[in-house]
Design a protein around this nucleic acid. Sequence first.
DNA 1: TATTTTTTCTGGTAAATACCAAACCAACTT
DNA 2: AAGTTGGTTTGGTATTTACCAGAAAAAATA
Lengths: 236, 236
Amino acid sequence: MQYLKIMESINEQIEAGLLTPGSKFPAERKLAEAFDTSRITLREALSLLESDGKVFREDRRGWFVSPSPLSYNPTNTDNFKTMALKAGREPRSELLSSQLIPCPRNAAKLLGVEAFTKVFKFERLRFLDERPVAVTINYVIAEYFPRLEEKNFIESLTHTYKEDYKVLYSQTRYHIRTSSLQGDIAQALRATSGSPAMLVERVNHDQNGRLIDCDLEYWRHDAINIQSVATLTQED
Amino acid sequence: MQYLKIMESINEQIEAGLLTPGSKFPAERKLAEAFDTSRITLREALSLLESDGKVFREDRRGWFVSPSPLSYNPTNTDNFKTMALKAGREPRSELLSSQLIPCPRNAAKLLGVEAFTKVFKFERLRFLDERPVAVTINYVIAEYFPRLEEKNFIESLTHTYKEDYKVLYSQTRYHIRTSSLQGDIAQALRATSGSPAMLVERVNHDQNGRLIDCDLEYWRHDAINIQSVATLTQED
DNA sequence: TATTTTTTCTGGTAAATACCAAACCAACTT
DNA sequence: AAGTTGGTTTGGTATTTACCAGAAAAAATA
């Protein structure tokens, strides 16, 4: 199992700080030669480090050292920008698409609304220090937010809700599971199809208990770290 | 990219219910032949399904269809057994080790205690329907729980705390991130080294705000699904 | 200097092959 | 009936080879 040794060797170099976060590895063929092994075995070692979140790759671009993950607290309303800035990172968001459509199946299931309810769907790509780390897809119940498409919601939907509609998030139901990146989402994240991902699904209610939107967040799995404090209720 | 087609083909059979949860796939060589491809490409397809949580493998034993994940709520005190039973699953726990030791580095960091503080460490293996799904490692501050080693805590530590020491969990700080299974932990879970995992770290306080223990839970990544409801506090 | 085109490099995919060791099963022994 | 042994199957690991397509770099052009 020489791939284990290669893995450890690379790992040591990362931990020792010889390879800085975000820096690119030499070409696979060169690395394989350096470790006196085949390209396939070298890729095996890198893949293990990838599933451990130590390194990541960009499709046909190479392998990189993973930056430290962003702490993500699902129980507060900090938006992406705020979270990133608090952690000393540089956030950026891009709008990938936005449209007013009848609620699709998967979102209808999350929202618990009838089929054909009008929703405003939009997709955003989130960057941290110019690395694409997440694609977020929002489904907003259209009737509660007239002309939402004209507002500037790209950076923060939370902010738009509050300023333009006097709506505050008050309760959120969330699911978090591992998944893999496929198709358009993988492409937007410059990831190869099948890369490991964290999928965060949230369903949000406003201060009146009204269900207002849901979102799906596909994160590169090494880019976040779910973190929270809970006050426990004893059941029995 | 024929591995994508193979993947979809297998996936369809799973979704159609032709392959029931927990059932074993034919041997790799036979499957490869059936799909008229090489074993390597077949393994590529299965690996993708694995990272998506649709299938899992047991080391040198073969590939299996993943059962549906257990919903795990980090914000309540339901123990493993209770969670499993509520979901209609059959739980079982095995004690892998238990010892009274000076707090090791990683746990000291989580607990925020001085080095050499005595802790009671024990490892348990959790099964769902006889499938090993998680290894949990607990570090309990020994001075608060004299003779803990004599109690029957294997099924539920929570229960022992409550009945024998009148201690209730009241606040927990948790971190969740993806990781990979290695060494002993992988072996206990019958997983191959490097299999994807969910790592849940928790630090717990009792009803008096006293820090009492922490635990590390290594889950097979397809076996859980973090799920919770949060009441939000607006900051600004 | 800025833009476009061409070339080179590099990662992604795929096959064929080989050997090892653990798991499994069946036959045998006690 | 229970335990041991030995052969077979099967997944894990590793090498070699090949070709493709996208990305990056270099060269040519406007």
